[in-house]
Amino acid sequence: MRKRLHLPAIVAALVTAAGLLTAGSSTPAAAVPATIPLKISNNSGRGDAVYIYNLGTNLATGQQGWADAAGTFHAWPAGGNPPTPAPDASIAGPGNGGSITIQMPKFSGRVYFSYGQKLVFKLTTGGLVQPAVQNPSDPNRNILFSWSEYTLNNDGLWINSTQVDMFSVPYAVGVQPVGGATKTTGHLKAGGYNNFFNALRGQPGGWANLIQTAPNGSVLRALAPLYGVETGALPANAMDDYVNRVWSKYSSQTLTVTPFSNEPNTKYFGRVSGNTMNFTNSAGQTVTSFQKPDSASIFGCFKLLDAPNDLVRGPISRTLCAGYNRSTLLTNPNQPDANDSGFYLDTVTNHYSRKIHAQMADGKAYGFAFDDVGAHEALVHDGNPQTAYLTLDPFN
């Protein structure tokens, strides 16, 4: 399963390079301890047992593995071909109405949580095999679960609520800085869980096919549209009409991309020629080019919209991806569009992301991989974290 790791691979690398982290890091590196507590509260209203997993990369050694409840790191053993069972890395989670506290080490990874059953993880010679529930034969297909992504390093903590791969379990994340107020994100509006699935069912064009149910008919999740396209649940041409209109518009007009909010004079200018959108810098030099993207490239922000961790193509691609998913490229030739009141208004858009944002209490979500363009993502950060929070919210 292709996993979109926003924090370590995208946010940290690009934002650091652009000089954007300094504003959020108010303390010296030495202020961040080796571990910080993560308080996990279960307000779900469900009686199922909960299982917690803290998996990722040890930032001190570069090894992949898991952390136990005390924050002690364990490297994965060698895998096999076919994949071999991974060690049981589960931590018993809190029952309904309860909470537990575990320790988070300096990691870049994920905190998984499942209801009712433990997740199945396996190891190949290349590392950990993570759940791929778009595959009907995946052993986790009928388990209710989700995850939060985080990075804890010498510059602080970044932790998010993500729906990039699927919308499943309602939850929120938070961080309390030393001597400061807790910052939280990810809570749904009242009724938001059911409202999202009802809205997706009512969206024409195959969007209801993204919903997966358990054998007993209960809702498990909605897959992100990339996996809908890849499995045939969503038409492969879902975004084609919008792309064609973008291509027509910028064959005779210029698309201006200003990818760094703190560098307003760094601009790139896009024009379409045939099947290619070429971008030039202020000196008129061509710096990168993009072929006409298909729906999978747009929903996944990859392939024809690949975004390497550099300072030119990656930032331009991130901006284009956001503009396509939010359908703002036709209404605003200056990107990114800062006004979210104009997002998702075209009939051809990422309706999955649109409906998720509509149900979020603060309007923020990770509805697609680069939803952080313009800071519309469900992410909290602090350079001097004291405690992190993960709250399992009610389904009703």
Rank of each mutant, 00 (worst) to 15 (best):
K118N: 15
V120S: 15
K122Y: 10
T124G: 15
T125Y: 06
G126I: 10
G126C: 06
G127C: 08
G127L: 14
L128K: 10
V129Q: 15
V129Y: 06
Q130R: 13
P131H: 03
A132D: 15
V133D: 15
Q134K: 08
N135R: 11
P136C: 05
S137R: 10
I143M: 10
F145E: 11
W147P: 04
S148V: 14
E149C: 09
Y150W: 09
L152K: 10
N154H: 12
N154W: 08
D155H: 10
L157V: 05
L157C: 06
W158M: 13
I159M: 11
N160E: 14
N160A: 13
Q163S: 13
Q163H: 14
V164F: 12
D165M: 14
M166C: 07
M166A: 15
F167I: 10
F167W: 15
F167Y: 15
S168F: 11
P170F: 12
V173M: 08
V175L: 09
Q176W: 07
P177V: 05
P177T: 08
V178E: 10
V178F: 10
V178I: 12
G179S: 06
G180H: 12
A181W: 08
T182A: 14
K183W: 03
T184C: 00
T185M: 05
G186D: 01
G186F: 02
H187E: 12
K189F: 03
K189Y: 05
G191V: 02
G191N: 02
G191R: 05
N194S: 11
N194A: 06
N194E: 05
F197Q: 00
A199F: 01
R201K: 09
R201C: 03
Q203W: 02
P204Y: 13
W207E: 09
W207I: 03
A208T: 00
N209G: 04
N209H: 04
N209E: 01
N209C: 03
L210R: 02
Q212G: 06
A214G: 02
A214F: 02
P215R: 04
G217K: 00
S218F: 00
S218N: 03
S218V: 08
L220F: 03
R221V: 07
A222H: 01
A222E: 03
P225L: 07
P225W: 09
L226R: 15
L226I: 14
V229H: 06
V229P: 08
V229T: 11
G232N: 02
G232C: 01
A233W: 02
A233C: 02
L234Q: 00
L234N: 01
P235I: 11
A238R: 09
M239L: 03
D240F: 07
D241M: 14
Y242N: 01
N244E: 11
R245N: 12
R245P: 05
V246H: 10
W247I: 00
W247S: 02
S248D: 11
Y250H: 07
S251L: 10
S252T: 13
L255E: 07
L255T: 01
T256L: 12
V257K: 04
P259D: 13
F260C: 07
F260H: 06
F260P: 03
S261Q: 08
S261Y: 15
S261K: 13
